[in-house]
Design a protein around this nucleic acid. Structure first.
Lengths: 357, 357
DNA sequence: CGTCAGTGATGAAACGGTTCATCACCATTT
DNA sequence: AAATGGTGATGAACCGTTTCATCACTGACG
C-alpha cells in the first residue's frame, strides 16, 4: 500500500550503489567506506527531493540504537492526577528531549501486569535510555536497568553511590523556609510533612529541624504532622494543629508544598482566620499557584522544569559515553517571599538588597 | 556487547525452526503456516524462560506496524506551561495508550526547523497513528497526514467533514453558564472570551450570546471582552470591565476558563471586592482550582481527561479498520455550582432536585 | 494400491538499512 | 617497470523478524 521511498530509490536516482547512498546519508565514513564530497552532495540533494530520511527502526536493527529515550513516571495515573510536580518534571524531560531532536516515549515504572517496561522487552529495542521520575523508593525497575547495564538517570530519588541522579536541594529549602519564619520572630513553627519516607519529605524535614536547632529552638513533636502533598492534606493538617491547646498552638506553618499550603489557606478562610496575622504560612515548590492565592504565598522555589531538562541532558551525555563530572546533581533552591509569611515589603526589599550586594 | 536473546536462541532451545518459533510467538497462523498446540506451548515456555519477547522494531520491519501511537501538542512549550488544559488532555491520551498496551511517543506539531513530524520522517516508521491536540486552526501537519493517509484524531479542533475528532460541548457550556447567571437574576452579564478565533472560544461565546437572546436580553458589546486563557488575562479583563461607568457595569462575569476566573478573583480581592456579592463569577473547565479558590468557583465541568482517553480509543479503532459509528465525538459538559455565582445552598438543592425528577 | 487432502514443520526470501571486505583506478615511489 | 599506497565506490553479509512456497508424512477414499 503506502510504498514509501527507500534508500534503494535514492541510490538509483543518484546513480550510485546503495552502500554509497547509505554512507552519504548517515554521515559516518569509516576507513573503508568513503564517498567523495561531490557525490555526497548529489546524493543528499536527491534524497531531499524525494523526501527521503532514513527510518530509525530499520537503521537501529544494525546499529543497535533506537534514537529515542524514555520517560518513566511511577504509575499510570501520575500523568493525570492533581499534583503538578512529577508531571512538571516530566514536561521538562519531554521539552529537552524534543529540543535535542530525540524522540521520547512514555512509560510507567510498573504496568498492570506487574512487569517493568524493561522486563516486558519494549524498552531495549525502543529506547536507548531512561529518565526515571520516582519519588518513592525501591522498584525492581532500577535493578533491571542496572543488571542489563541500561543507561538511566533518576529524578527525585535517593541515588545509589554510582548512579546518575537529579534532585533539588530539599534540605536547604526546608532550612531557608524555617529560617525565614524564625527571622520574622516566630518561635512556635509547625511543619506539615509530605508523604512520609520519601527522600524529598525527609530532607525538607531535616532542614526544618536543623534550622530550629541552629536558632536554639527545640523540635516540638506535636508541631510535626505527617500530612501529605495534596491540598486535602493541608486541610487535615491544619485541623490537627488547631486541636492543640490555644496557648501552645504554632504561630507559623511550613507546609509540605504549595498544594498543601492551599489546603491550609482554604481551611483558614473557612474558620475566619487570616494569613499572616493569625498564622504565617510558607509553601514549597513555588508553582504559579503561589502567585494566585490570597494572600500570595511565600514559597521555596523549586526548579521543576529545570530538573527534568537537566536529567535529559545528563542521560544524553551518559549515552554518548562522555565522562560526567558531577553525576549526582543537586539543583539550588531559593526563597520567593510574598505576603503569606508576613514579611513586610520593607523586609522583602532588604532581602533583595542583601542578595544583590 | 549486550547480546540480547533472539528468536534464533528460542528456536534452538526448543529444537524447532525459526519459522515455527515465530508463528508460535506471534500467534497468527495463516493457511500455510501452522504449529501444533503442543509445540506452541513448548516454544512459549522456552521463550518465557529465556525472557524473550519479540522486539517491535524488528517485527515492524516486515509487518509495517510500529506498535505505537503518537501524541501531538502544538508547540514544545505546551508541555511545560501553565495552562493545564492541553496537558490534561494529553495526560488522558497517555493514560489510555498505556492502559491499552500501546507505546506512546510525544511530538509537537512543528519542530524548530519548521518541519512537521510527518515531514521529518520520524512518524511513519515509528508510530501507526496520531492524536493531535491542537486548539489553533490550520497547520500543515493535518494536510500531511491526510495526503499520506496517515490515521489521526484531532482534539479541541474544528474537524473537517470526514475527520475523526473529539471535542467537548463548549457551546452548551457557554449556554448553561450564562443561563445559570440569568436564573440568579442577573441582567448585565459580561463574558471574558478566551484566545480569539479558536473554536473553543467561539463556541463558548456563541452559547453565551444565544442564552442571552433566549432570555430576551441584548448582547452588549462592551460586556464582551477578548481576554485570553491565562490568569493574567482575567486580571486585565476585569479592569477593562470596571472601566465602564458604574451604572452600566456588569453584575456577573462568565470567565473564559478557571485560570482566567482566578485572575478575576485575585484582582477583586486587591480592590476589596467580594464574589458573589459585588460580582457573580462563573468559570470554565472545573479543574481542581475551582475547589480551592475563595469563594469556591462555580464552573462548567469539562471532561478533560476523558477527551484524551476517548481520542486514543477512537484512534485505535480507526487503526484496526473498524467502522466508527460517530467519528466526530462531542462530549457533554455540566455545571458544577459552587458559591462564587451566588446560588444559595437552597437553590443548589433545587437544581439537584429538579434534575433528579 | 494409487491418489488426494490435510497437518505440521521448514528453508529461504523478503523488510530497509549499515558496514566489512574487496576492488578498480590512478599517482607516487623504489 | 614493478611495487606501493591512497581514494572512491561496490557487492554481499548481516541485523531480527515475518511469511510465502515447499515438503514430508499420515490417513482416508475411490
Amino acid at each position: 500500500m503506502r510504498k514509501g521511498v527507500t534508500i534503494r530509490d535514492v541510490a538509483k536516482a543518484a546513480g550510485v550503489s546503495i552502500a554509497a547512498a547509505s554512507t552519504a546519508l548517515s554521515g559516518n565514513v569509516s576507513a573503508s567506506t568513503r564517498v567523495s564530497g561531490e557525490t555526497r552532495e548529489r546524493i543528499r540533494n536527491v534524497a531531499r527531493e524525494l523526501g527521503y530520511v532514513p527510518p530509525p527502526p530499520a537503521r537501529g536493527l544494525k546499529t543497535r540504537k533506537a534514537g529515542a529515550i524514555g520517560g518513566v513516571l511511577p504509575y499510570v495515573h501520575a500523568f493525570g492526577d492533581q499534583n503538578p510536580f512529577c508531571r512538571g518534571v516530566m514536561a521538562g524531560v519531554v521539552e529537552q528531549a524534543i529540543t535535542e531532536q530525540q524522540n521520547i516515549l512514555l512509560f510507567t515504572a510498573a504496568a498492570e501486569d506487574g512487569k517493568t517496561p524493561v522486563e516486558s522487552g519494549i524498552v531495549s529495542p525502543r529506547v536507548d535510555g531512561l529518565v526515571i521520575v520516582l519519588p518513592r523508593p525501591g522498584t525492581s525497575l532500577l535493578e533491571h536497568c542496572r543488571r542489563k547495564q541500561f543507561p538511566y538517570v533518576t529524578v527525585v530519588h535517593d541515588p545509589m553511590p554510582d548512579e546518575c541522579s537529579v534532585n533539588a536541594d530539599d534540605y536547604h529549602g526546608g532550612r531557608i523556609a524555617t529560617q525565614h519564619l524564625i527571622e520574622l520572630g516566630h518561635r512556635r513553627i509547625a511543619h506539615l510533612v509530605g508523604t512520609p519516607h520519601i527522600a524529598t519529605s525527609r530532607q525538607r524535614r531535616a532542614g526544618y529541624e536543623d534550622a530550629l536547632a541552629d536558632a536554639g529552638l527545640k523540635v516540638d513533636e506535636r508541631f510535626v504532622v505527617e500530612a501529605g502533598f495534596d491540598w486535602s492534606d493541608g486541610v487535615r493538617g491544619l485541623d490537627r494543629l488547631l486541636s492543640l491547646p490555644p496557648d501552645v498552638r504554632p504561630t507559623a506553618v511550613f507546609a509540605a508544598n504549595d498544594l498543601c499550603a492551599v489546603g491550609v489557606l482554604k481551611r483558614m478562610q473557612e474558620l475566619g482566620l487570616r494569613a499572616p496575622d493569625d498564622l504565617a504560612l510558607v509553601g514549597f515548590d513555588d508553582t504559579w499557584l503561589a502567585e494566585t492565592t490570597d494572600p500570595p504565598l511565600t514559597s521555596v522555589h523549586m526548579p521543576i522544569l529545570e530538573m527534568g531538562m537537566t536529567a535529559t541532558r545528563l542521560l544524553m551525555a551518559q549515552m554518548r559515553g562522555e565522562e560526567i563530572p558531577v553525576p549526582q546533581v543537586r539543583l539550588p533552591v531559593s526563597l520567593t517571599v510574598r505576603s503569606s509569611s508576613g514579611a513586610s515589603p520593607q523586609s522583602e526589599f532588604n532581602v533583595d538588597n542583601s542578595r544583590s550586594i
